[in-house]
Amino acid sequence: MRTELKINGKSHVVDVEPRKSLLDCLREDLRLVGAHAGCEHGVCGACTVIVDGTPVRSCLMLAVQAEGSEVVTIEGIAPAPGELSILQDAFCETHGMQCGFCTPGMILAAHALLRDNQEPTREEIVEAISGNICRCTGYDQIIEAVALAARRMRGRNAPDQVSA
């Protein structure tokens, strides 16, 4: 089925079977392999992408259903090759990962949180990432990364606070 997808601001036309998930389409047809298949039944969150501004499971969505939606994947987050977003950099700063498999989904979930909430509490961070299972870290350094990014983003918006 001919399907037009808008991914990271760019249009792509793919020919997919209706049964193909958005996840498989991104990975196989568009070679955007940052979204990962962990469970393929909507529990682990490794396949998280942002659809129309909200993190969703790309394994629980058909590619044909995504036509007309704006999809953002982890590949669309870094500002330029070799450059990291504030959030991505914060994940590096706190080592908010180990094996890196859940990391793209985790970052996209946190990315959406920080867009709506510049001053999240620990509970709000936990809730925002609670649909993303990390088996390595116990979440501590992930929560720390999101909090750190929030601080830094607030700082950027209010330069007088970080002039020191």
Binding site: P55, V56, L60, A109
Partner: peptide, 9 residues
């Protein structure tokens, strides 16, 4: 109901 990403869809 589920968690934030499932409530989104």
């Amino acid at each position: 109901v589920g968690h934030p990403p499932t409530r989104a869809r």
